[in-house]
Computed example of a mutant assay.
Amino acid sequence: MIRTRSLAVDGSRFRRLAPLAFPTAWGAVAVAWKFGCPLARQPGLPARIATSLVFLTVGAGLVLGISRGLVRELARVRAVADAAQRVLLRPPPARLDGLTLAAGQLSATRGAVVGGDLYEAVATPYGVRIVIGDVRGHGLGALGAVVALLGSFREAAHDEPELAGVLRRLERALRRHLRERAREEHPSRAGSEPEHPVAEEFVTLLLLEVRADGRLAVLNCGHPAPYRLGRRVDRLPVGEPLPPLGAFPLPDALVPYSAPRLLPGETLVLHTDGAEEARDRRGRFFSLDEELGRPSREAPAALVRRVQAALLRHTGGRLTDDVALLAVRNDRVRVPAQPAEPGLRRPRPAPSPHC
């Protein structure tokens, strides 16, 4: 196994150096020509021009070979990073227990697929459970908290019968992550003060449970309320907000807010605050409610793409905060009770033997 790994490493190094083989060989020929050819040692102008052209060609070949190798290496690294980020913040399934879902993420960090926003939806025996959150700050520096919260949610959503239990698990996971980060970033260990102290980190978060009959249970930790798209566009009531996770301990009593039912055909649009705080060059905020209120019968995926495109147009492609969108449409159909076919009569119950 060790020999196989060594051969693989040697092969990888050979592939990286392969683009430099031709310019290096050409350079060796140029040096040999310079010092071994009598014409190259003549003091005349034609000889100097020929020598300069040879070495210019060698230099251009070396630069081209190195740049091509770097471009290929960058493409490989970017492909691996994109794959890792998409595993972390995977897109939700298109259909989940009668609901149609779609999500999208815009990162403020150039070249990143994900940032400090998170979302997930899973079908459980207690209903479809959804989380959306926003870690303080943005970009790749917030990925640690995103990893901790998503990993905890994906387990707790199936294990905990009560939505309050899921939130408790998320709080414990975030606390563990912050303790570990505090140890790693301590000046005695890291050698410098952290850019974003752990004491200042918190997460706004919204937990939502969609039950089989469309009833909604909500726990909101300082996160923007979602929009409901039905006959009109309005905010879904989510009750009194709890403190963001990490800022203060959760209260002893956690009672989910019972929101109005999500009726068949209605859509919920969950979002992070970057969607409503995005500004254009004049400092004007993006009007998310107006964009959602445009008359349309789009599927959730088309709705998310349209809002993302409108956001990028409004900001000119210069986002200052991450933006996450999650659209959930109730496509469950209640089948009415079917009447008995004409001509068929219910059988009479058998007479009691005591009659």
Rank of each mutant, 00 (worst) to 15 (best):
M1I: 10
M1W: 04
T4G: 06
T4M: 08
S12E: 13
S12N: 09
A18W: 12
A21R: 08
F22N: 11
A25V: 12
Q42I: 09
P43D: 06
L45Q: 12
P46Y: 13
R48K: 14
F55D: 01
L56Q: 02
L56S: 13
G59C: 14
L62K: 05
G65H: 02
G65Y: 03
L74R: 15
R76D: 13
A79V: 08
A81Q: 13
A84F: 10
P93S: 07
R95K: 09
G98F: 05
A103L: 07
A112I: 08
G116I: 04
D117E: 04
D117I: 00
G127D: 05
V128S: 02
V128Y: 03
R129P: 01
I132M: 13
G137F: 07
H138K: 13
L140Q: 12
L140I: 13
L140E: 11
A142Q: 05
V146R: 02
A148D: 05
A157G: 06
D159N: 15
D159Q: 14
E160Q: 15
R169N: 10
R169E: 08
E171I: 09
L174K: 01
R181Q: 14
A182N: 06
R183H: 12
E185D: 10
A190S: 15
H196D: 15
V198Q: 12
E200K: 11
E201Q: 11
T204G: 09
L205M: 04
V218E: 01
L219R: 00
N220V: 03
H223L: 09
A225Q: 10
A225I: 04
L229G: 00
V238Y: 09
G239Q: 01
E240Q: 14
L242W: 06
P243H: 02
P244V: 06
P244R: 09
G246P: 01
P249L: 11
P256D: 12
G265A: 01
G274E: 05
A275V: 09
E291Y: 03
R294P: 02
P295M: 05
A301W: 10
V307S: 05
Q308V: 07
Q308T: 11
T320Y: 14
L325R: 08
A327S: 06
D331M: 09
R332H: 02
V335D: 11
P336V: 12
P336A: 11
A337R: 15
A337C: 05
E341Q: 14
G343Y: 12
L344V: 14
R346V: 15
P347R: 15
S352K: 11
H354D: 15
